[in-house]
């Protein structure tokens, strides 16, 4: 007993030092972690720098003029045709078909899951959508070429539907994007506060009127964000179009014809023998830069919408 007391006293009377101490280990670790955090910035800078550098070389080529790039409709850089439109239109057509399929379906699935399905049904059905979301795009490509195309051919006739065509790629892309749109929309719908639903029910609204006329409009910005992300995914998607949409730029608005998209073009040309510093090489980077910028802008808009949406209901 006595001894314990002395220890306590000793400790109490030891001079107290609360000054900051150097902890070199801590500082080194913190610096390393900070660098890891910066790593993502490096990646973005590297993308912008590398794509920009080669694209600069491409656009710096005296043969590539603004008028040719936006004013003509043949793209064959190897022999001096620099009209970007065939790649852009096919990208737009396949993406539009994809969105045309995935937005209504995705939204309907989201409404069903968030407003109608019992928790039990929801937990049984959601994994199916997750599986759909987890299937590699190359498998969707197989599906587009060997299922969707024959299906379209049997409906519209082999004369109408070419073996490689934008419609089948676009439709399958729609199926691929569906889970993305439905899960983002479902998040938006379930973020709508319960008080709003109760307000509607208390007015004598049915479940359907509540879901579609009150909850859906309230979640509209979140659904808009989902739509934009969906567009961005469709524009950037490569394998489905590389396999099923056709190889070779083709300026056409007929969805049953073959036409190569921006991503499909990059995949085909870079998959072959490609010598550095050729116009083919730099042109690919110019296309990739356009893809990067468009998807970046879309993603930023979508994120901005989501952040605003979140603030409103928090």
């Amino acid at each position: 007993m006595k001894q314990e007391n002395t220890i306590m006293e000793n400790q109490l009377f030891r001079p107290l030092d609360l000054k900051k101490k150097m902890r070199p280990g801590e500082s080194v670790i913190q610096a390393l972690l900070f660098i890891a955090g910066l790593g993502s910035i490096f990646i973005t800078l590297a993308i912008v720098y590398e794509l920009g550098k080669e694209a600069w070389l491409f656009f710096g080529n005296p043969d590539v003029t603004f008028a040719k790039f936006f004013g003509t409709t043949t793209w064959q850089p190897g022999i001096g045709h620099f009209g970007i439109w065939p790649l852009v239109t096919s990208t737009l057509i396949t993406s539009s078909i994809a969105i045309f399929v995935s937005l209504p379906l995705g939204l309907a699935v989201a409404l069903f899951l968030s407003e109608y399905a019992s928790p039990k049904a929801r937990s049984a059905l959601k994994p199916i959508l997750e599986i759909l979301a987890g299937i590699p795009t190359v498998v969707y490509g197989y599906f587009a070429l060997l299922f969707m195309t024959p299906l379209l051919q049997s409906i519209f006739g082999k004369q109408t539907v070419e073996v490689y065509n934008m419609a089948s790629a676009g439709l399958v892309m729609g199926i691929m994007i569906l889970p993305l749109i439905s899960s983002m929309s479902e998040d938006a719908l379930s973020a709508v506060p319960r008080a709003l639903r109760e307000g509607a029910y208390a007015m004598g609204a049915t479940k359907f009127e509540t879901s579609v006329q009150v909850v859906l409009p309230a979640a509209l910005s979140g659904i808009g964000a989902a739509l934009i992300i969906g567009i961005s995914r469709a524009i950037g998607e490569t394998m489905i179009v590389a396999i099923a949409a056709g190889s070779g730029p083709n300026f056409t608005f007929n969805p049953f014809k073959a036409a190569e998209t921006m991503t499909g073009h990059i995949a085909r040309i870079s998959g072959g023998d490609l010598s550095y510093n050729s116009i083919d090489y730099t042109s690919l980077f110019a296309i990739a830069l356009m893809l990067f910028l468009v998807t970046l802008i879309l993603n930023l808009i979508s994120q901005g919408i989501i952040n605003k949406f979140r603030q409103r209901y928090e």
């Binding site: 973005t44 993308i47 950037g236 990059i266 990739a288 990067f292 970046l296 993603n299 994120q303």
Partner: peptide, 16 residues
């Protein structure tokens, strides 16, 4: 930036 990188098309990573 991290959130955006997650949305960059994979083929752009290929070009990088």
């Amino acid at each position: 930036n991290i959130n955006n990188l997650a949305g960059v098309p994979s083929i752009v990573y290929g070009m990088l």
